[in-house]
Nucleic acid binder design. Structure first.
Length: 604
RNA sequence: GCUCCAGUAGCUCAGUGGAUAGAGCAUUGGUUUCCUAAACCAAGUGUCGCAGGUUCGAGUCCUGCCUGGAGCGCCA
């Protein structure tokens, strides 16, 4: 009697606590009942005393294994008994339940629960039917907004230096970063999208000088253009514009002037390219500002004050050969950061012997500033080639007695554009070249495919897998692309709404109990979006959303075929219910497509 | 040489320590008087790189090896 009352109390509490998640509700109820059964068995001496671990009840992949399952074999060590006997003991002590009519034990120790009498199905249907209107009215409330409530997040991504167009590699970074930002927003965070770029280093000087020479060429000067300068045609175009605007008026200007022009022009281009795939940064943070504010020198001073800096013509712990090498190169003393203190394999130069800092110092200063801005989460999307650099920055932050934990780096593995060789059938990398028909910029990709295709394909793989972006697949097989498969689900809903309006048919007074199991299956799957977002955010895995979107579309399309709305054989009541269902489905797809940064066309 | 990532169907890739490893593409056959067929239905496909180990249970965790990629500068 006591146990029955305990069950009831617990059931009530759980229903109140986990109403937004029906699966969790059922699993928690049954898990609670299993725990009660275990306690009962322990108090009657059937099982030895041990603390009952938190082993979740789950839903089996295969329906033949029941509606729910409990892996009793995980108790075998604690109970020092055969898993099958433990399962049997639980079975014999289970309280009555509206969810469970039958139990079955299957080796190596699964206790499977069946709900044959339909109680479970009935309750499930009632709850799912209720969700349809909730989804239509306010799908937001089904998202895990509590995760980032009152929290600030930053995503730093792209961060390509303004020395040329956005390449395929940058594109992957951009798509992953922006999707991460959108997911963080869906989890309730206030998100800032930041772009950090190095415009103080040698790269930009070379860019300025490259443009200067191109300009002089435009004026007709015979100039030998060095191999290690920027070769791209785009600088020739900029130079031509300058020549048109200024004639030879800039002949005596120095590289600095040209650098500024090039930087401005490149950024305009980069932003235009990113805007084409619906990506926009809130903030651009440049390296130069760290010099102007003298922040980098203050950081260096702080490192020095903490005892992590030394001056030497070679690193501490260098072997004889390395020392000899530095002597041979006649290095003057440089300023070193003793990063080995924090686990680095070797110390790093902060300021070169010529007095110029390496990239590392401003990087540390930048991240120091970032931490001080107080973000709860700061995601940094970087190419895998920055692996060591990112580690050194974290060592630097520790040396400054800062906690680098809010910073999380998503490393993006290499991406290359490939196409199939017609003769050999092998995939071949497309060379980085500007020849017609070759793809190596974001602009090219968008022009040949579409913004949506680029976003989907770049997102739909784990960031730490190398990616071969198969141009032929994306371009030629456009009609059988997952991109359109997903979007078509939304388009089909829109088509129904158009037709319904034309016919003057609406869903007023719809009785959703007339919906079939397939529609409710879709609703049930939709409710998993919250879990997907939570998982994507907490594990920094934005690609999860792309796979979820495809799974959802795969459930949707068969329903569209079966569950017609405006069809002569469909009774009006059922049609109303279905129309209401498709309104919910449209909301779900709209939400997911926007989370991926894709468009939501009404027609295709 | 050291560090990191990857190796899963013909191809491109998913895969919270759970039961019979999944999608898409490609291949084969079928489906449309009525919301657009970029769809639906049906069919086949595996030494999860190799070898050990931990575990009641390993594609998943640990160790070693093989293969591919990236990083290891007073480069940016």
């Amino acid at each position: 009697m006591e146990i029955e009352r305990e069950t009831r109390k617990r059931l009530d509490k759980i229903i109140n606590d986990s109403l937004p998640d029906f699966d969790a509700l059922c699993r928690n109820v049954i898990q609670g009942q299993v725990e009660i059964a275990l306690k009962k068995a322990q108090s009657s001496g059937k099982l030895p005393e041990f603390e009952i671990p938190d082993i979740p009840v789950s839903i089996p992949k295969l329906p033949v294994h029941g509606d729910f399952t409990y892996p009793a074999m995980r108790l075998s060590r604690l109970a020092k008994k055969n898993p099958l006997i433990i399962a049997e003991t639980i079975k014999n002590n289970m309280p009555r339940s509206v969810f469970v009519d039958e139990m079955e034990i299957i080796p190596p120790g699964f206790l499977n629960f069946f709900s044959d009498s339909g109680h479970f199905a009935e309750l499930e249907k009632r709850i799912l039917v209720g969700w349809v209107d909730v989804i239509i009215d306010d799908f937001e409330q089904l998202l895990p907004l509590y995760i980032g409530e009152d929290k600030q997040a930053q995503v730093e991504f792209v961060s390509a230096n303004p020395s040329g167009p956005i390449t395929i590699g940058h594109t992957r970074n951009a798509v992953v970063g922006d999707a991460m930002a959108r997911l963080l927003e869906a989890a309730g965070y206030t998100v800032q999208r930041e772009y950090y770029y190095n415009n103080a280093g040698n790269q930009m000087i070379v860019l300025g000088k490259s443009l200067m020479l191109r300009y002089l060429q435009q004026l007709g000067d015979a100039i030998d253009f060095p191999d290690d300068y920027y070769q791209g045609d785009y600088l020739v175009e900029v130079a031509a514009d300058l020549a048109r605007q200024h004639g030879d008026g800039l002949r005596d200007s120095d590289w600095q002037r040209f650098k500024d022009v090039a930087e401005t022009r490149m950024f305009a281009w980069i932003n235009r390219s990113l805007a084409a795939i619906d990506i926009k940064h809130d903030d651009f943070y440049n390296e130069t500002s760290l010099f102007e504010s003298r922040k980098i020198w203050r950081v260096l001073d702080a490192l020095r004050a903490n005892g992590h800096i030394y001056e030497s013509s070679h690193r501490e712990g260098a072997d004889a050969a390395e020392v000899a090498d530095t002597k041979e190169k006649a290095y003057q003393p440089a300023t070193w950061f003793r990063s080995t203190t924090f686990g680095d394999e070797k110390d790093r130069v902060m300021v070169k012997s010529d007095g110029a800092p390496t990239y590392t110092l401003p990087d540390i200063a930048y991240h120091c500033d970032k931490l001080k801005r107080g973000f709860d989460v700061a995601v940094n999307v970087l190419g895998a080639d920055h692996f060591s650099q990112a580690a050194v920055v974290k060592y630097g932050l520790r040396a400054l007695k800062l906690n680098p934990d809010p910073i999380h780096v998503i490393f993006i593995q290499m991406v290359r554009a490939v196409r199939r060789n017609k003769e050999s059938g092998e995939h071949e990398a497309i060379k980085q070249s500007k020849r017609a028909g070759d793809f190596d910029t974001l602009d090219d990709l968008v022009a040949m495919t579409s913004a949506d295709a680029v976003r989907y394909h770049m997102l739909a793989r784990s960031p730490n897998s190398q990616l071969d972006f198969d141009v032929d697949q994306v371009v030629k097989q456009t009609n059988e692309n997952p991109v359109y498969y997903i979007q078509n689900a939304y388009v089909r809903c829109a088509g129904i709404f158009r037709e319904a309006e034309e016919r003057g048919f609406d869903d007023d007074g719809a009785d959703l109990n007339l919906l079939d199991a397939v529609e409710l299956k879709f609703i049930r799957k939709s409710l998993e979006l919250g879990n997907v977002i939570e998982q994507a955010v907490t594990n920094y895995e934005p690609h999860k959303i792309a796979f979820f979107a495809h799974e959802l579309a795969a459930i949707f399309h068969p329903i569209y075929d079966q569950a017609r709305v405006l069809h002569s054989e469909v009774p009006p009541g059922v049609a109303k219910a279905r129309l209401r269902f498709y309104r919910a489905a449209a909301v779900v797809f709209h939400r997911i497509l926007r989370l991926m940064g894709m468009t939501t066309p009404e027609r295709m």
